[in-house]
Nucleic acid binder design. Structure first.
Length: 267
DNA sequence: AAGCCAGTCAACCGCAGGGGT
DNA sequence: GACCCCTGCGGTTGACTGGCT
């Protein structure tokens, strides 16, 4: 037995909303706002709709402060990055994007980004074996939540995101290696490229890959590994707690998609 | 012109969790 | 603590559309 339906299905209209219904809901919300409950709103607004349907229609479509479609490369980058950290926490991801709904982000991921990611992974796997994993796995797939959370992700930024944007220490950032007594590991995790003598993370990544003549790079220090694998327009960078021999990824900590050129897209 | 197919996205469904009683 | 109500969320469905044969 399932839960009782929230409303009488025979008495309410379902399916696509008509312009008249949109007008009625929009007019009601503009006059009164949602001061009461969504359950009682349909009656007050003269709608033969379920309250949940009204809520969804307003939040995902009629609300004036949202925009649809046309995701920018910058937004795509943020979505890739946050998905690698959070998994399918669409409301959290949407909260990092201006005027986007969770439903829109979810649809965008399922219809476009996921396919681009799969295509990039397939293209990569035909060339060589990745050092650890070619794609950041969703957080939900890991037994432990990423200790890198909460993220400090800028929501308004004109230029491409850099390595530092996503891993800069924040007040809430925990040092995953502090308990292990390692003083250098967290520093290495925060800037594994610093040792390369480069002033910028992207330049260091470029240099590292160029020096290796390779499409991937990795490094290990006392307690952490990082690895980067390329695709057409950037790199997937993963961070893992090192295993006993420092060569194996023991625990996935986080990762992000790092676009070397924001004007390029995957695939 | 008709049928098929894939892509897109609005909408639905059911569950989880918070708050009130 | 148990129960109920309501909201929020994520997974899924299905209508619609455009391209292709």
């Amino acid at each position: 037995m399932g839960r009782a339906p929230c409303c009488d299905r025979a008495a309410v209209k379902r399916g696509p909303w008509s312009p008249e219904e949109d007008d009625a809901l929009r007019d009601y919300m503009q006059r009164h706002g949602n001061t009461g409950s969504w359950i009682t709103l349909p009656n007050k607004a003269g709608l033969k709709r379920c309250g949940k349907s009204c809520r969804l229609r307003w939040l995902n479509y009629l609300r004036p402060d949202i925009r649809h479609g046309g995701f920018t490369d910058e937004e795509d980058t943020i979505i890739y990055s946050l998905y690698s950290q959070l998994g399918s926490k669409w409301s959290l991801i949407a909260s990092q994007l201006e005027r986007r709904t969770d439903n829109d982000v979810k649809n965008h991921w399922n219809t476009k980004l996921k396919k681009r990611l799969a295509a990039a992974a397939a293209a990569f796997s035909t060339r060589r074996s990745p050092p650890f994993m070619p794609l950041p796995a969703p957080a939900a797939a890991h037994a432990q939540p990423s200790p890198l959370l909460p993220l400090s992700v800028p929501t308004v930024k004109a230029e491409a995101y850099t390595y530092d944007d996503f891993l800069a220490p924040t007040a809430g950032l925990q040092d995953p290696f502090a308990a292990e007594g390692s003083s250098s590991a967290s520093a290495a995790l925060q800037d594994p490229f610093a040792a390369e003598g480069s002033s910028s993370a992207s330049a260091a990544l470029h240099d590292t890959l160029a020096a290796e003549g390779s499409t991937s790079a990795s490094a290990a220090s006392s307690g952490s590994n990082w690895s980067a694998v390329d695709n057409a327009g950037g790199f997937f960078v993963d961070f893992c707690a090192a295993g006993p021999d420092l060569a194996a990824a023991d625990q996935f900590l986080g990762g992000f998609y790092y676009p070397l050129d924001p004007t390029l897209s995957l695939v």
